[in-house]
Amino acid sequence: MSQHTHEHHIPLWVFVNVFLALIVLTGITVWVSTFDFGPLNLVIAMAVATVKATLVGLFFMHLYYDNKMYMFVFILGVLFVGVFITLTMYDTMRRGDLDDAKAGPIQTQAAFYDSLDIRAAKFGHGDGHGTTGEHGSTATTEHEDTTHAGTDAVPHDTTIDSTQPAGMDSTAGHSPEETPAEGH
């Protein structure tokens, strides 16, 4: 056999030790979570999880012994997840003007809590269709000038596809240019 198959020589005790380490680390992370360290809880939990995942990757998945190309591919995947989360949160955590940046979604409290009585929903969902008319009509008035009718043709009627959840009715009358932007 060539030198490429050297994982043959990995003894079983390596795997047993890794297994025991993973169990111990699970115990540690559960135990730590019973204390309140504020934001540090998340840091500790993620650090422990990263150590566990690294152990799995290096030994169970043979990354420590194998061609380093595989490790490169793996790290590349993780790296781009990092890029994705970081750059997205540059937006979501700093919404608004430069000098008045704040974190938050477009609409903080879901409109669905206003239009839908949560307790009533337990006994069959309330009919949410009643609230649509007013939302729909406000959307239309902004587009009375129908010379540019391309997007104006979006349905103004409040008939909603029966598969639609009731909580979504408030957006039914919006036309595309009210959605924040179109793509290039």
């Binding site: 699970t26 992370t29 559960v30 979570s33 309140d36 360290f37 504020g38 809880n41 998340l42 939990a45 993620m46 422990v48 999880a49 566990k52 995942a53 799995v56 990757g57 169970f60 998945m61």
Partner: peptide, 21 residues
Amino acid sequence: LFWHLVDMVWIFLFPLFYLIG
């Protein structure tokens, strides 16, 4: 390898959902 990845994902899901402070 596939199975280890599934395990790895759960290693992160567990603290993120069950162990929030």
